[in-house]
Simulated scan of single mutants.
Amino acid sequence: MGQGGSGGTSESTGSGGILWQIIWLILLVLAAIWVAGFCAWWYIMLIPFTVCLPPMAAVTDILLRGTQLTYFCAKNMMDANTFNEAWNSAASTVPPTVLVIQNSG
């Protein structure tokens, strides 16, 4: 699988078919949205405390991955991945981001 830049986009699709897309859609609607909402609330509440308590960053990192669960399900639905294929690519399946760094000088 070719991993392109940020976001873990893959050029190939999974070995699952329409049934796997339906399974991922059901998981997205019935579970992922609710889990992501729960994690997002806790992430918002706890992230300011990581300034004073840097070890808490491990907790907020897990919560951030929980908020990205909807992306994970949607990505695997569109790629028609089986659970095994999704599990193998889980670490690199993150939403694409655009990071702009400005030099002050």
Rank of each mutant, 00 (worst) to 15 (best):
Y71R: 03
I47D: 14
L63H: 13
V98K: 15
L64A: 07
G16W: 04
S104F: 13
N88R: 09
Q3V: 11
W42H: 12
S6D: 08
M56A: 13
G66W: 01
S104C: 05
S89V: 08
I101R: 11
W87V: 11
I18C: 01
G7L: 10
I26S: 06
N84S: 12
M56P: 02
G66P: 07
L30H: 00
W24V: 00
P48E: 09
S89N: 14
G5E: 08
L46D: 12
T9G: 07
A91L: 12
G7V: 09
A86G: 03
S104T: 13
G7M: 07
T9A: 01
L46H: 11
W87F: 05
I33A: 01
W42P: 00
I101M: 11
A36L: 04
I23N: 00
S15L: 10
V94M: 12
N76R: 06
A40F: 13
W34N: 04
T67V: 08
S6C: 05
A36I: 09
P96F: 06
P48W: 14
T82G: 04
C39H: 02
G14D: 03
Y71K: 00
L64G: 02
S92K: 09
Y71Q: 02
I62R: 13
S6M: 15
S89I: 08
W42M: 09
A86Y: 01
I18S: 03
G16Q: 06
I23R: 01
S12N: 08
I18E: 12
T93S: 04
C52N: 05
C39A: 12
W20N: 04
C73S: 08
G105R: 15
G5S: 12
T60Q: 09
C39N: 07
P96S: 14
C73A: 09
Y43V: 11
C39P: 03
G17K: 09
T13N: 11
K75Y: 08
F83L: 10
G105L: 14
F38D: 01
I23F: 00
M1W: 01
N81E: 13
G4H: 10
A58L: 15
T50K: 04
V59E: 03
L28P: 05
G105M: 11
T13C: 04
L64F: 08
E11A: 09
V98P: 00
P48F: 11
L25W: 04
P96I: 14
F49K: 05
T13D: 14
D61N: 13
A80Q: 10
N81Y: 06
Y71F: 15
T9R: 02
T60I: 14
W41T: 15
L99F: 10
A58S: 10
S92V: 12
C52G: 09
T13K: 05
I22M: 09
N76P: 03
Y71H: 13
T50P: 14
M77A: 09
M1I: 01
I18T: 08
T13G: 04
W42C: 05
M78T: 15
L63F: 07
L19A: 12
T67N: 02
T9Q: 07
T13V: 03
A86L: 05
A57H: 06
Q3N: 10
A80L: 07
L28V: 00
P54M: 14
